[in-house]
Lab assay of single mutants.
Amino acid sequence: MPEGSASLQLAVGDRVVYPNQGVCRVSAIDVKEVAGQKLTFVTMRREEDGAVVMVPEGKVLAIGVRKVASAE
């Protein structure tokens, strides 16, 4: 991610809310080559049905992904 860009610090195992998809758990953060460029992807699995969603790390905030609020 370019320096100075806002990002959401995620780790494998974090629970997040993905708008219009529901609650997901981060299952992987991997670098993949797409069209000759190396990009970091956040892979999330929906808790409702296990569907897998992959989002480029740089788009996580723009999409509206946020961490699940704690009970505290």
Results as ranks from 00 to 15, higher is better:
Val68Ser: 06
Ser27Ala: 10
Gly64Asn: 07
Val42Ser: 00
Asn20Glu: 10
Ala35Met: 11
Gln21Lys: 14
Asp14Val: 03
Gln9Cys: 02
Ile63Gln: 11
Gly4Ala: 13
Glu72Gly: 10
Val53Ile: 15
Glu3His: 09
Lys59Arg: 09
Glu33Gly: 03
Leu39Ile: 15
Lys38Asp: 04
Ala35Asn: 15
Phe41Tyr: 10
Met44Thr: 01
Met1Ile: 12
Ala51Gly: 10
Met54Val: 15
Ala6Glu: 11
Thr40Val: 14
Pro2Ala: 12
Cys24Tyr: 15
Val34His: 06
Met44Ile: 06
Cys24Pro: 00
Ala28Phe: 05
Thr40Tyr: 07
Glu33Leu: 12
Gln9Tyr: 09
Thr40Lys: 11
Glu72Asn: 12
Arg45Glu: 14
Val12Gln: 01
Lys32Ile: 15
Arg15Phe: 14
Ala11Trp: 05
Ser7Ala: 12
Asp49Pro: 01
Lys67Tyr: 08
Phe41Thr: 06
Asp49Met: 02
Ser70Ile: 11
Val65Tyr: 03
Arg25Asn: 03
Phe41Asn: 02
Val34Phe: 08
Lys38His: 07
Arg45Thr: 15
Glu47Trp: 02
Glu48His: 10
Val12Cys: 00
Gly13Ile: 01
Asp30Val: 14
Glu57Arg: 06
Arg66Pro: 06
Met44Asp: 01
Met54Ser: 10
Phe41Lys: 02
Leu8Pro: 08
Lys38Glu: 07
Gly64Trp: 06
Gly22Met: 05
Pro19Phe: 07
Leu39Pro: 01
Arg46Ser: 07
Val34Pro: 01
Gly36Asp: 03
Pro19Thr: 04
Gly58Phe: 14
Asn20Val: 05
Gly4Leu: 10
Leu39His: 15
Cys24Met: 14
Ala71Ile: 12
Val65Phe: 04
Ile63Thr: 09
Gln21Trp: 15
Leu10Ile: 08
Met54Pro: 02
Ser7Tyr: 10
Lys59Ser: 12
Asp49Gln: 01
Asp30Ser: 13
Gly50Ala: 03
Arg25Ser: 07
Gly13Phe: 01
Cys24Asp: 00
Thr43Gly: 01
Ala71Lys: 11
Ala28Asp: 05
Ala6Arg: 11
Gln21Leu: 15
Val53Met: 14
Ala6Gln: 13
Val68Cys: 08
Leu61Thr: 14
Val53Ser: 04
Gln9Phe: 09
Asp49Ile: 02
Val26Phe: 00
Val55Lys: 02
Gly13Lys: 01
Gly58Thr: 14
Pro2Cys: 03
Val52Pro: 03
Ser7Gln: 12
Asp49His: 02
Val53Pro: 01
Arg25Ala: 05
Glu72Tyr: 07
Phe41Met: 14
Pro56Glu: 15
Glu57Trp: 15
Val60Lys: 03
Ile29Ala: 00
Asp14Cys: 01
Ala35Tyr: 09
Arg45Gly: 02
